[in-house]
Design a protein around this nucleic acid. Structure first.
Lengths: 233, 233, 233, 233
DNA sequence: AATGAATGAGGTTTCATTCAT
DNA sequence: CATGAATGAAACCTCATTCAT
């Protein structure tokens, strides 16, 4: 399957970039847990292997981009929710997490994979770019959060988002049931695995958000190292 | 062609297994972020590559074993603390986390790596064995925890430990500062990276533990899917 | 997207063709020993990659054309020298070689590269065209040579030129000192490399020319396979 | 075709190395003028591609090794001839050249390819090693030559060998008839190509050797740059 | 005519893993 | 048991060339 169309305009390029990400996502889901295979992505995208490298410097960047595309959906939805003047409660937040992170089958594996990338020595450009993307979104959403939940002191919004993210992904990693081995339930020792991700997550996030947003239960929040003095109202 | 003395007794084997783990740890720390390299481990251990596979089925199992060795230290210490009839407070717990997880330079990278392994298709034996190891320890420690903190309802002890673990590792992954690129601080976009892991972690754990152990603030805890109450000795 | 003015007239085309050759030469000299890179040539020429292929069928043809442009200078100068009724001696020939082949920094690398091309399966058109260019020049110059040096029997002029060319290029290849590794001189084994190209060449050519042009030392010269005497105008 | 034997002894390794060279030679000859293809070599050698790189750092080194293996045959034969106390004449030398260089179908293409390699920036180790191999052989044989031909002054033996080599390879490059295009003879312009390599070579080498070995016709020979003062007998 | 995105072949490299010795 | 040569898959990379625009 040879694509002869050329993406000449920046717009077309964006389209093709997204097509590659689509292909990568399909491949990533298809391979039950195996590593993403660039050759396969190329085939699925209907492109030559070399073409992938015109759009992404390497596999890691491709994964990060895919993850960012997913995260963006979540960020946008959360931003919209927080921008809305109607009152916001935690159930809405949880529903949003459910919809954008738990349900899409690719999100959690990808997030897990990318979180694992963070502590490897990525090329500087890659690392900083990704940190910037995520960081800025988190800061903005955190600030919006603080506006909607006055119990959150300055900086606590971003903190809360970060910790939520970590719990969402980390609990999933921990409670992942290897789908390939359904009979592993038989073993008495794995009682631990029987814990159910959705309910554990629900509970964890509720605890976390209530802890931070309850009028009085609020936990003092560490401000970023470099933060200018914080005015408490 | 080095013919090393053979480990015939089970005892010798244990010694050699540990020697391999020592080598792996040394290598893992040495490589700033690179993947563990089996050839290098073999060299450092003074063994041939093939010999490693007599003691560990593969690289992943080696990593998990290394991680378990570290985790065991933490589990033992926590068990001892909880077994002690003296009153326990969160500061002691945090000190323990600090000492066994944050300070040892290998713990967090390893934990991160192993958490990332969880969602890949490990051989069943491997996955279940590891889950059993960790799971049983967490259940026991969770139960002990519940005995010391009456505010914790049944099952909340293990839940609390799991969530703590996830926060400890996940926040580290998120806030890892790429050590190779000290000048990345210059970029305005990475304000996000300036957050400080130790203080974020401290705050997160405090919130979590207080939330669960406060007499009244307790969050209702989901019990494991298997409804039957679990008796731990 | 640079839309350059189009070369509509044959004259313009020739100009552009030469501009490409200029660019290629610059690139070829710039890259210390690396292969000529078409993309780079295009950039230096201020053209798109594809445009190069409107003027040259491929890289090899570009190299050959570049080489021919250089060789033409040498051929012209030699032709002029031989056309001149004044007496000719070997020193003049050697000076000419020095000036047109040894001194221009691009000549020897190019000649070496093109000589190496000869035994690869070039497209027929390419091979024959180049052979024709060079061959005709050599035949004519050889004939002129024979007129000026009566000791040369028929055919020996061209033979002499060919052998000279081979020595000029071949000795250079053999005695090339890798400029990137100045410290390779330290090794005792490379005494061989210490031989000096200019003096070896001088000696070789003198021997050759004297051997052929000395009244009596003349070596009998094989005539081309095609027995028929060749009339050159 | 999977070779399961392992080369454990240095001797076995040498055998396998030679097997790879055999395969490379077969491939090199098979491909009429195309570049040596490592994958194909691996297939023909019955080895995995990766295994080639256990024996040779890269393609260029493989080619050079192949060339050296051929050259060694020539060097050995020449050494034997010169060691023999019986009188030596140029016909014997020419026969040797014919047998070891002209007739084996791989020699000249390889020599041509390797000569072309010389002016590219090879890895230092590679370049120096090869120069050392060839250089030492030439120096030794040159010295032996000088002993057998008293007309050769010091250093002239090596010089003569070098110039011979250059003529052998260079004339072949120049007079190569593209075998794939037999009909190129039809063109009037390529009269030049009709010259016959064997006879041109014979003539060139005779001239060269006579020039250097004739009692009186001897051409003064440049001594290597670093040479200690030369005693003339 | 000019463009440059896309191609695709293939060299290089790395490495976990296997298995004949 | 121990060895390390061999495997083979895949990432990575470079580049001449093509061809839709």
């Amino acid at each position: 399957m040879v694509i002869r169309q050329r993406a000449r305009l920046a717009e077309d390029k964006e389209v093709r970039r997204n097509a590659i990400l689509d292909a990568a996502e399909k491949v990533y889901l298809g391979e039950g847990g195996r590593e993403l295979n660039m050759a396969e992505v190329a085939v699925v995208a209907g492109l030559a292997k070399g073409t992938l490298y015109l759009y992404f410097p390497g596999k890691e960047e491709l994964l990060l981009a895919l993850h960012e595309r997913h995260a963006e959906g979540y960020f946008k939805a959360l931003g919209a929710l927080l921008a809305n003047p109607a009152p916001v409660n935690i159930d809405q937040i949880l529903a949003l997490v459910q919809k954008h992170m738990v349900e899409p089958p690719a999100f959690l594996p990808l997030a897990s994979r990318c979180l694992g990338l963070m502590d490897q020595c990525l090329p500087e450009e890659t690392a900083v770019t990704h940190a910037a993307h995520v960081g800025m979104a988190l800061e903005q959403l955190g600030a919006a959060l603080e506006r909607r939940f006055p119990a959150l002191i300055r900086g606590a919004g971003t903190t809360l988002l970060m910790q939520s993210y970590v719990l969402i992904v980390g609990l999933w990693q921990l409670l992942q049931k290897p789908k390939n081995y359904p009979n592993c339930q038989d073993r008495i020792e794995v009682r631990f695995l029987r814990r159910d991700y959705p309910s554990e997550l629900d509970q964890a996030l509720r605890a976390l958000w209530l802890g931070y947003t309850e009028p009085r239960g609020g936990v003092p929040v560490a401000t970023p190292q470099s933060a200018t003095p914080v005015e408490l109202p």
